[in-house]
Design a protein around this nucleic acid. Structure first.
Length: 675
DNA sequence: GCAAGGTC
């Protein structure tokens, strides 16, 4: 009898691709009942482990099952929110997933082997156990050792997939357990805190504001730290105190060129010291060229595109918020234009046929057609390898040609960016020649430099990067002695940091492990929806006159790390929330400002003096470490859940006792009452 | 009416 194998992928696209490879491309999928996306592919395949098999390849669409509290805990007024730390949780298949579950049950009934093809990451491992549960409830033989296996694959190249099919491995229970722990904690903690906040604080606001809208005040392990980043920056802007600094500027006119030299010390915050050094320069009268060096330099092409990078670039270059960019990328993916849009990988697998992908972009008459042609005719260069590989998806790249005229203006911007980014990755780095000149003027060193761009290469297809030649430098030689045309002491002021922009916020979330590539945009949208933060276009804030004192020191002002100098900055209020003169490319960029409510929540919790801050990323990071501990067998799922629940329950109780502190913050910020 | 994570 032929062995029957049921293969289940995490999403339809993987099922189609894998079935294509195993069956030899000519396999037609059959729609399943009640779901338009999921298909079953039937074919034969000779697995070394089981011999000739008849195979059904199908898929789920992400998690198959959901968790929620037992019915008696669903009414908000029906129980103390704290009860949710222990309330029973039930597992069920969501209504819209029932056709998919039914399909798996039907197919699993008579199969001998269940072969899981979910993504090789933690969530994928958990989804694998959900599939196994559904299948083995119908067909218990699948619980026997070796009857349920999974494939290990990190891309969908033919050879790689065939190899994976021939070398099944067991599901990784530890990884699935880690996800399961995370799910339980997020549900219990999120729900209990959210109900408590809404009932204890939200209702007060509603009464005072005499508003009827159902405002939810939610807490989540990702949304709160995201809010925390916005509030933290807001206070850094508000509390900023400008400081005066002094620097020396030297200019020299030679060969009819005005050369301006930068002081090697940058600037000093002590005027006396600056003046003394300046006087020593003047005393010396002449300056001597100590270095004149010209060398080749290159500007590196960008790394292969990840989701986080796509979102950052979307805000920065395309003026689109991250959620919108992801919506469009998702559409492109579903239409078969681009690869999977949720990826952390910034390196192309060696097996991928980049030239074939470039060839697709030589069709039609687009702004990039000629460049793609050029790549195929000698200008190709292997993409850089980044440091990240999620082992599940390649970097985002175009997989088919799309004629730009068929797209809306908004779609075009995102699509064109993805294509240009891909072509840039396959092009050569830009080449230039950089000249550095150093002079010694009295005891002080000054530098200047010039750049000549020799070959633009990738820059021709990637206008988002700027690299331009500077003005020519005159011909200096080492040992030249000259009298500077002008030397003067200049003062300037440090300027405040700017409010957080979306790319910065995404960067912070990414660096602190808040959310995943697929969810960061949602968390940002969530805190807007909750009215914790607002966005506005940069540059609209009133500019105060004394903000504009900076002259040539713009780029050395330490506006991004004012504390770094170890000087007494913490002078409290008094700084302004005034706008910084944004660089031109930042004009119109959206910036994030917390609402009074957002500030009140963060301040309120902070003022409680809890040892674990709810608005800082540490708790989420701790959860991440505990998940890792489960994966590595150092902790069990039960231990992690117990420990974390104890911790959050403790914070919950303390916070409950200190509700007046939270109320005070709300009165202060939301109602504008003196504290 | 709650979370965060998958996915269509």
């Amino acid at each position: 009898m032929v062995t029957k194998v049921l293969c289940v992928a995490e999403k339809p696209s993987i099922a189609r691709a894998v079935a294509g490879h195993l069956a030899g491309e000519n396999v037609q999928g059959r729609n399943i009942q009640g779901n338009n996306y999921t298909k079953n592919f039937e074919f034969d395949f000779n697995f070394p482990t089981w011999g000739p098999c008849s195979v059904v390849m199908t898929s789920v669409a992400g998690h198959l099952t959901s968790q929620d509290f037992a019915p008696e805990y669903k009414k908000w007024q029906g129980c103390d929110p704290a009860a949710l730390f222990e309330a029973p949780i039930v597992n069920f298949v969501d209504e819209d997933r029932k056709p998919i579950a039914a399909n798996i049950e039907r197919q699993a009934r008579y199969c001998q082997i269940l072969y899981i093809w979910t993504d090789c990451d933690r969530e994928g491992e958990h989804i694998g156990t959900e599939i196994r549960k559904t299948a083995s409830d119908i067909n218990p033989r699948l619980r026997q050792p070796g009857k349920t296996v999974r494939a290990r694959f990190s891309n969908i190249e033919r050879a790689h997939i065939l190899d994976a099919a021939r070398h099944p491995i067991p599901l990784d229970e530890a990884q699935a357990d880690a996800v399961s722990a995370r799910m339980e904690l997020d549900l219990r903690i999120g729900s209990s805190y959210t109900r408590s906040l809404t009932l204890n604080v939200g209702n007060i606001i509603k009464q005072r504001m005499q508003s009827d809208d159902k405002q939810i005040l939610s807490y989540g392990s990702c949304q709160f730290p995201t809010l925390g980043f916005v509030v933290e920056r807001y206070f850094r802007v508000r509390n900023f105190v400008p400081e005066t600094f002094w620097g020396i500027k030297v200019t020299h006119k030679k060969d009819d060129i005005d050369v301006s030299f930068r002081w090697a010390r940058g600037h000093l915050f002590d005027r006396m010291v600056a003046v003394i050094l300046f006087e020593r320069c003047l005393t010396a009268n002449t300056a001597c060229v100590t270095k004149m060096q010209t060398k080749l330099t290159s500007k590196w092409k960008p790394l292969p595109l990840t989701t986080v990078e796509l979102q950052k670039c979307g805000s920065r270059f395309l003026r689109m918020d991250s959620q919108r960019v992801m919506q469009l990328a998702e559409q492109f993916y579903q239409k078969g234009w681009i690869s999977y849009p949720r990826t952390e990988t910034d390196q192309f697998d060696r097996a991928i046929d980049l030239r074939a992908l470039i060839t697709k972009q030589t069709q039609g008459q687009t702004p990039w057609t000629a460049f793609a042609d050029g790549l195929l005719n000698g200008e190709f260069s292997n993409p850089r390898q980044g440091r990240n590989n999620d082992k599940a998806h390649p970097p985002i790249h175009p997989v088919n040609f799309v004629s730009p005229e068929t797209l809306t203006a908004e779609e075009q911007r995102v699509h064109e960016f993805i294509v240009r980014r891909f072509l840039a990755c396959c092009a050569k780095d830009a080449q230039g020649s950089k000249t550095d000149v150093s002079i010694l003027y009295g005891p002080e060193t000054f530098n200047t430099s010039g750049l000549i761009v020799l070959e633009r290469n990738y820059l021709d297809i990637y206008p988002y990067d700027k690299w331009t030649s500077s003005q020519d430098l005159p011909n200096y030689r080492e040992g030249d002695v000259f009298e500077p045309t002008e030397a003067r002491i200049e003062d300037g002021q440090t300027s405040p940091p700017t409010y957080l922009t979306e790319p910065e916020l995404i960067g912070l979330m990414d660096a602190n492990g808040i959310g995943t590539d697929a969810t960061m945009a949602e968390h940002i949208a969530k805190i807007k929806e909750r009215q914790y933060v607002e966005t506005r276009a940069r540059g609209r804030a009133p500019v105060q006159a004394d903000q504009d004192v900076e002259s040539d020191f713009e780029d050395v002002a330490d506006r991004h790390a004012p504390q770094a100098r170890g000087r007494g900055r913490g002078r409290g209020r008094g700084g302004r929330g005034g706008a910084h003169r944004a660089a031109p490319q930042n004009q119109g960029m959206q910036e994030f400002i917390p609402t009074t409510l957002g500030v009140a929540l963060v301040e309120g919790y902070d003022n409680m003096g809890l040892e674990t801050s709810l608005s800082k990323p540490f708790l989420r990071k701790e959860m991440e470490l505990k998940m890792k501990a489960i994966c590595e067998g150092r902790m069990t799922r039960r231990e992690v859940v117990q420990e974390s629940l104890d911790q959050y329950r403790d914070v919950y109780i303390r916070a409950q006792r200190q509700l007046p502190v939270l109320h005070a913050a709300v009165r202060k910020y939301v109602f504008g009452e003196a504290g």
